[in-house]
């Protein structure tokens, strides 16, 4: 059973006063539990649109998108939001921590949309998760008092606090220096391995992409498998 599957997915938008624009064209992708997938592509290649679809934030114009083998179209809007909250964790390039809230409150935020014990014990769960990413001593710090690496760790803790089965990392090291980026990626890898979650990393950095087991390239809306050796070489050259 696949966790997430795209079959011949197309996404078209119609800009005002312009002809229809196909952003994704015939995309096929299967994500299984525990997968490590990287998708590289230049700006404008359709990475964000693909991320929207993978995160159940958007619907394909045509083709099939399934989650747990169930067509996403069959979910109501609210049900899709709930599945996303419970099963998918996002890590963003700009961290996107909520300003004015402590690290603990930021990590507890996704649990506000949970139910039962997860909701009522959200502070304890958030504190445990911050301990896990090595920020047990910065729980009550505001985001603007944290370094870039610490902020991304908080963001990672937030994305993992509900125990998602799929982690979507959108340029997760884009705002970090090389060493910090590397340690952050190692952390994401470790947590994903321990929890058995699938990790899909969207990046334009070949070094980050090279950490994955399956590599894809997105070019002008078309997703193709990338050559691992080529990526490794690019990564080597960059380092």
């Amino acid at each position: 059973m696949s966790l997430l599957e795209l079959r011949d997915v197309t996404r078209t938008v119609i800009p005002p006063d312009q002809p229809a624009l196909t952003i994704l064209n015939g995309v096929d992708l299967t994500v299984e539990a525990g997968d490590r997938i990287s998708i590289v592509g230049r700006s404008g290649s359709g990475k964000s649109t693909l991320l929207n679809l993978l995160g159940l934030l958007d619907m394909p114009t045509s083709g099939l998108l399934t989650f747990d083998d169930r067509p996403v179209k069959s979910y109501s809007g609210a049900a899709r939001d709930r599945v996303r909250g419970a099963q998918i964790g996002f890590v963003f390039q700009q961290f996107n921590l909520l300003p004015g809230r402590t690290a603990l409150e930021n990590v507890a935020m996704p649990l506000l949309y949970a139910e039962g014990r997860s909701f009522w014990r959200r502070k304890k769960l958030a504190a445990d998760m911050l301990e896990e990413v090595g920020l047990g001593n910065r729980m009550h710090s505001m985001p603007d008092r944290l370094s870039g690496g610490e902020q991304q760790r908080v963001a990672i803790a937030r994305s993992l606090v509900r125990g998602p089965r799929l982690i979507l990392a959108d340029e997760p090291t884009g705002a970090l220096d090389l060493d910090t980026g590397s340690s952050v990626m190692q952390l994401i890898d470790d947590v994903a391995t321990r929890t058995g979650a699938a990790l899909v990393t969207i990046t334009h950095d070949p070094a980050i992409a090279a950490r994955a087991r399956d590599h894809f390239r997105l070019d002008r809306g078309i997703l193709t498998r990338a050559d691992s050796d080529e990526l490794a070489a690019a990564s080597e050259a960059l380092s």
Binding site: L57, D81, R84, G85, F90, N96, M109, L112, Y113, R162
Partner: peptide
Amino acid sequence: VREIGIRRSFGATAGR
């Protein structure tokens, strides 16, 4: 808008 987008991505429904 940004904050609302973040909350939506973590499971907040439109109604919520």
